[in-house]
């Protein structure tokens, strides 16, 4: 496992995602409610580019005709067949125990600390003034 600097914190606007390629794998890095998450850009169902799907809330209902939203923007809906995935865990809503998308650990690190290494930054030049998103792959 190695750590990879994949973006500056400012680069990914809240509620959006940057798709990066690390070790030959496409990974979506999300910025949601001041947190960052990383998921493989491949739906476990039939391989759609999962991270290009819409970010939605978690829909819950105590009973018919009652609707509530929780965890706004933390569910990723696959663009192909609309299965929903939890960006925190990668678990699908419909079958959380056996259908899940791979997730990767994400940290925000100051450039100052990163300058000391070790890390791999394929595309992102590091300066000490910035904060960076680092994922472990």
């Amino acid at each position: 496992m190695t750590r990879h600097i994949v973006a500056t914190v400012d680069e990914i606007a809240p509620g959006t995602c940057k798709i990066v390629t690390v070790k030959g794998r496409e990974i979506g890095v999300f910025h949601i409610n001041n947190e960052f998450f990383a998921l493989i850009n491949r739906c476990p169902h039939q391989g759609a580019q999962l991270c290009r799907g819409a970010l939605l809330s978690r829909l819950e209902s105590p009973g018919p005709g009652e609707y509530s939203l929780t965890r706004q923007g933390e569910m990723l809906r696959c663009p192909w067949h609309c299965w929903e995935f939890d960006v925190r865990t990668g678990q699908s809503w419909c079958d959380p125990d056996s259908v899940h998308a791979r997730t990767f650990a994400v940290e925000v690190e100051p450039g100052e600390k990163l300058a000391k290494g070790p890390f791999e930054a394929e595309t992102v030049p590091v300066s000490v003034e910035q904060n960076y998103v680092v994922i472990t792959v």
Binding site: L56, L59, E60, S61, P62, G63, P64, E66, Y67, H81, C82, W83, E84, S92, W93, C94, D95
Partner: peptide, 15 residues
């Protein structure tokens, strides 16, 4: 089909 359209009827919360 439920897997993809379940959001319309969120009370159907299991298979």
């Amino acid at each position: 089909t439920w897997r993809g359209v379940r959001s319309e009827t969120p009370w159907v919360d299991r298979v």
